[in-house]
Design a protein around this nucleic acid. Sequence first.
DNA 1: AGTGTGACCCCGA
DNA 2: TTCGGGGCCACAC
Length: 103
Amino acid sequence: MFEELRRYVKKIPKGKVATYGQVALAAGFPTGSRQAAWSLKTFDPTLPWHRVIGKINNRRGKILLRGANGVEQAQRLEAEGVTVNGIHIDLERFGHVFRHRAS
DNA sequence: AGTGTGACCCCGA
DNA sequence: TTCGGGGCCACAC
């Protein structure tokens, strides 16, 4: 399961972001958003973990990571061209859509 | 097997 | 917009 989740995380292109729920859904786990997060908590350097964020309403993302890691994530995203407004991100602009199971 | 915990998410106030 | 409550699933005790 985590292999699947990580596989999809790797598919997120640079400069874009996806929500935990999106990744889980795309990987085939409609209710596995928490596990999507869990699979990234290892901070595997081969994974773009900073491109995965939490969803607030339908068009806005938010960095859930606390402390230094949260700052780290925000900086990495901005370094890739993603506009991070405080802790929220515009999903309409930077949200990545997986083709496997389109909306 | 039961309980607590988490980088979640939706809904209502 | 922010806060709380309830539902969700896998892991560690």
